[in-house]
């Protein structure tokens, strides 16, 4: 058996596959079940400072090629999150990444600070500056500007000792330069990528956009090539590790994006296609491939494409 364990910012993950933010991330019960089904770690959905209702339905749909969502980051706010996380963190059997979001830059700092009050600490903070579905509330996502991205990074770093990973948007001219700016601002890691777009789909019989928000982020198999390219480019540009996410639907996809530069691999839309069976199916596929290739530790393949 190949060793699937990876070390990410000093945190040991039993395997590189982590639940991406926004999927199933509502309750401690969900997290525990996902770990029991074979995930290497969990990312919570985005936590806001105050309760945030999100968008009306339909908020998501999919087909064999892609998935679209505009959930609008519904959340009960930091106070409720502290209760939920306070119960879960001491009992967790694998690392927990807490994803935070804000409409103002100072919100990110306030949430990071509030998380310091938890009796047990999350393993990582993921700073979501790249959701494409909340633009109306704060203009363009902070991930679209080198200056804003760096400023949010610095603010969060000043309030927490937990390692932070900054989640970037693919919807920018040069993702490498944004990655470099958050690295220089003190980020411990990068998560790439958030959903692509936003995109738009209409129902022609009703002459109505399918998503209540009219537009939504694109995920799933169709965006995998974009994720691989972004991760490849970021790996070349920075020294900090990457959580590679976006359209990973199989163990082979996970291996490919790790070779492009990912240390951890975020998995979201694959749950739509495969349900909870995804985790064990994918890790088995990865183990078998590594065994066939006579690779003992999965960490040996991280960034492999850059070594040729």
């Amino acid at each position: 058996m190949a060793n699937l364990e990876v070390n990410f910012c000093g945190v040991k993950f039993p395997n590189p596959l982590v639940l991406a933010s926004g999927i199933l991330g509502v309750t401690g019960g969900s997290f525990a079940r996902t770990i029991a089904k074979g995930a290497g770690g969990i990312t919570t959905k985005s936590i806001w400072k105050n309760p945030h209702p999100g968008h009306h339905n339909p908020t998501m749909f999919g087909n064999e090629h892609y998935f679209m969502n505009a959930v609008g980051l519904s959340d009960a706010g930091i106070q409720k999150a502290l209760e939920e996380l306070g119960e879960y963190i001491p009992k967790r059997k694998a690392p927990l990444i807490v994803n935070i979001v804000g409409g103002k830059k100072s919100d990110f700092a306030d949430i990071a600070e509030a998380l310091n009050d938890l009796p047990g600490k999350p393993d990582l903070l993921e700073v979501n500056i790249s959701c494409p579905n909340v633009e109306d509330e704060f203009g363009k996502p902070f991930a679209c500007s080198i200056i804003d991205a760096a400023e949010v990074t610095r603010l969060v770093k000043s309030k927490t000792k937990i390692p932070i990973t900054v989640k970037l948007s693919p919807n920018v001219e040069n993702i490498s330069s944004i990655a470099k700016s958050v690295e220089d601002a003190g980020a411990d890691a990068i998560t790439a990528i958030n959903t692509v777009g936003p995109g738009m789909r209409w129902n022609i019989d009703l002459r109505t956009p399918i998503l209540a928000n009219k537009v939504g982020g694109l995920s799933g198999p169709a965006i995998f090539p974009i994720s691989v390219k972004c991760v490849y480019d970021i790996y070349k540009a920075v020294k900090i590790p990457i959580i590679a996410t976006g359209g990973v639907c199989s163990g082979r996809d996970a291996l490919e994006i790790m070779m492009a530069g990912g240390t951890l691999v975020g998995v979201g839309t694959a749950i739509y296609y495969d349900g909870d069976d995804f985790w064990n199916k994918a890790t088995s596929e990865m183990s078998e491939w590594l065994k066939k290739e006579k690779i003992k530790n999965i960490s040996e393949i991280i960034g492999l494409f850059h070594k040729k």
Partner: peptide, 18 residues
């Protein structure tokens, strides 16, 4: 990419009009 061949439920969840 193997997921599309192994779907265990409805693939297309776009609403249908009635």
């Amino acid at each position: 990419m193997t997921c599309c061949k192994e779907l265990h439920h409805q693939i297309n969840t776009e609403p249908k009009v009635f």
